[in-house]
Amino acid sequence: MTQDTITPAASSADALQVLCIGSVLWDIIGRCPTDMRRGSDMPGRITRLPGGVAMNIAMTLARFGLKPDLLSAVGTDPEGEELIAACADLGCGTQHLYRSADLPTDRYMAVEGGNGLIAAIADAHSLEAAGDKILRPLRDGTLGAPRAPYQGAIALDGNLTQALLAEIATDPAFAQAKLHVAPASPGKAQRLHPFLAATRGTLYVNLEEAGLLCQAKFTNSAEAAQALIANGAARVLVTDGDNSASDATTSDANAGADTVITKRPPQVTVARVTGAGDTFMAAHIAAEARGEDRHTALDIALQAAATYVSGDTPL
């Protein structure tokens, strides 16, 4: 099974729209093929490409034939203008982005070795400063409003402030949307607590993030997924690197016989890690948008993430 398992839409006019809310920035990634440790000074490659959780998800959705539309903050500085052009070239809608001359374009910097991510810093201060201004299209009637809420799919990332995420979890403007939520990083995992409290959305987390949300240690993805459901999650997908991934949901008529599904990812040689979780989430959203069942959607997402980390898909 490959990423091509998902059939692209016939045309952009027919494509399903997915709003991608969160960080849209420049990724600056240094990669070294050999293992690294603290203090290592090694030869490698440094790249700059459009990134951020919302942007990574949007790029993957576009590759699968969907129509991603970005809601974020991008500066009017030269870096911002260049980023807007790059987003458009990648098939990602930019017409609803919040632009401010007072806020510089955000950036993310990471160093990766052959042994995975060594360190990273996310400078998403402009996104946080923009606050709920990025949500105006969902409240002023452009895309939706509290009395006529947006009814499509939304991919939401945890780079927003916890206060804003809490607001979204109970906001009438989001009441009919199909929410897909990721924490962006373990350091921001606890920002997702409002979605547990409100039993809203599908949460995409890794094993470490699940542990932080539940204040517990887990040995596998199935255990973590079940604990998140017990703590209020409506649905959750938990990944554990190349060990396993689990999809758990509350027991209802739509869950079928399996409230928890666990599968093992394809084994591949790792060429990169930044963006793998975002690719998994986007592939899963796209698969279910095409009507795939839970088992097939999880298979597709795992294959897409494996193909990505192996370096076989475009950056």
Rank of each mutant, 00 (worst) to 15 (best):
A257I: 13
A10N: 06
K67F: 10
I300Y: 05
Y108R: 15
R147E: 10
R147F: 04
T34V: 13
M1L: 14
A13K: 15
V111R: 02
Q176G: 03
A155S: 01
G152V: 05
A177C: 03
G256R: 04
Y98I: 03
Q17Y: 04
V181E: 02
L49V: 11
T259H: 15
I154G: 02
D247K: 02
V238H: 03
M109Y: 14
A86P: 08
E128T: 12
G116E: 13
V53N: 07
P68Y: 02
L16D: 08
R139I: 00
A224R: 10
T279C: 08
D41W: 05
N115P: 00
E81G: 15
A276P: 05
G277C: 06
L49G: 00
P68Q: 14
F195R: 04
D252H: 15
P50V: 06
L212S: 04
P172E: 07
A297W: 06
T142V: 12
R272T: 12
G44L: 09
F218H: 07
L16W: 10
A276R: 02
H180P: 03
D77Y: 09
R45Q: 06
L228H: 08
N115I: 09
P149V: 10
G39T: 03
N243S: 08
D278A: 13
N254V: 09
T307A: 14
P8W: 10
I46F: 01
D312Q: 12
I21N: 08
L143Y: 11
T250W: 07
M109G: 06
S310E: 12
H125Q: 10
R272P: 05
A271C: 13
A124W: 06
R31S: 12
T34F: 12
C87S: 09
N231D: 08
G211D: 05
F280N: 01
V74A: 03
A166N: 00
L160Y: 00
K188V: 06
S40M: 03
P50W: 02
N159H: 09
D4L: 06
A153M: 01
L298N: 05
A122M: 06
P33Q: 11
A88N: 15
R139C: 03
S244V: 06
A227H: 05
V74R: 05
A129T: 12
E167S: 05
D293S: 04
D4R: 15
T296R: 14
